[in-house]
């Protein structure tokens, strides 16, 4: 859904859902994940529907991701770091995939 407006000079490598991805340095984790072409960041715990970052300013909590083993991190408020391990919180029927 999103792509870079210009070629970025500096990048860092994150491990997203187990796969290494090069992303621009200095961006928020939510932006980095959207920039890799993912359309959603988690599924609703209640309905299982896909959800994506909505506000990008720390209000809606739709951007919750597991970052470096800590669950439910507000990824729009966290900056990417080299080697960061990020997992989308995709759950079905209350179980994690």
């Amino acid at each position: 859904m999103f792509s870079s407006y210009e070629t970025t000079k500096q990048t860092v490598t994150i491990i997203l859902d187990g796969k290494p991805q090069r992303v621009p340095a200095g961006v928020s984790v939510a932006a980095a994940v959207l920039g890799t072409g993912k359309t959603h960041t988690r599924t609703s715990l209640i309905s299982g529907e896909p959800r994506a970052p909505f506000c990008m300013m720390g209000v809606c909590y739709e951007c919750l991701l597991e970052i470096d083993s800590r669950k439910d991190q507000q990824s729009c408020q966290v900056q990417v770091k080299e080697g960061m391990i990020i997992n989308r919180q995709i759950r079905t029927n209350g179980e994690e995939k």
């Binding site: 200095g26 961006v27 932006a31 959207l34 970052p53 909505f54 990008m56 300013m57």
Partner: peptide
């Protein structure tokens, strides 16, 4: 997405 959110993606991600 909120328009402000899309604006943030420009500022803090250079994403369009």
């Amino acid at each position: 997405m909120s328009a402000g959110g899309a604006n943030n993606l420009i500022k803090n991600g250079g994403l369009v």
